[in-house]
Simulated scan of single mutants.
Amino acid sequence: MRKVVTLELLSNLKISQFQPMRKTEIDILVDTLKSAAEIGETVDMSVRIASVTADMTCLTVFGRKYADKDLNEEGLKEVMKETMEEAAAFNLGDYFPYLRGLEET
């Protein structure tokens, strides 16, 4: 899976191709933050950044944004959060390949 992601999504060419999309999404985030600042609204940056990250990931992988209602009751953002937590978890097999058989599933 990591090899496919690296070759298909994280190559220099793909990253360059998605730059305008990333800029657009960041511009949208900045505009919403400016609007919130103008009216004195408190903003939870963790939620906003997670939302932008999920939107960018969906656009990159699926070619469109998905709202929580487009999926099951758990919602895409929750699935993305769980996926990111799992992907970021320490994996002994990454550092010691001969131990991969001992990994928990």
Rank of each mutant, 00 (worst) to 15 (best):
V79P: 09
A50L: 12
A87M: 08
M56Q: 10
E41H: 15
T53D: 11
T53P: 11
V79C: 05
P97C: 04
V43I: 08
F62A: 07
D68S: 05
F96V: 08
M56R: 05
R100F: 04
F62C: 03
G93M: 02
K69W: 03
M56A: 09
V61E: 06
A50S: 13
M84F: 03
A89D: 03
A87I: 06
F90H: 00
I39Q: 15
L92F: 08
R64F: 07
L76N: 09
G93A: 07
E82G: 07
G101P: 05
E41R: 15
V52A: 14
I39L: 12
M45C: 14
Y95E: 00
E78G: 04
G93F: 06
A88T: 04
E104Q: 12
V47W: 10
V47A: 13
M56H: 08
S51D: 10
E104I: 10
I39E: 15
G40Q: 03
P97D: 07
V47L: 14
T42M: 13
P97N: 01
K81W: 09
I49K: 07
A37D: 12
T60W: 09
R100K: 10
L76T: 04
M80C: 09
G75R: 07
L76K: 04
R100N: 01
R48G: 10
L71H: 00
E41L: 15
R64N: 09
V79R: 06
E86A: 08
E38T: 14
D44L: 06
V43P: 12
Y98W: 13
A54K: 15
L92S: 00
G63N: 00
L92E: 02
K77R: 15
F62D: 01
D94V: 07
N91R: 12
E38V: 14
E74L: 10
A89G: 01
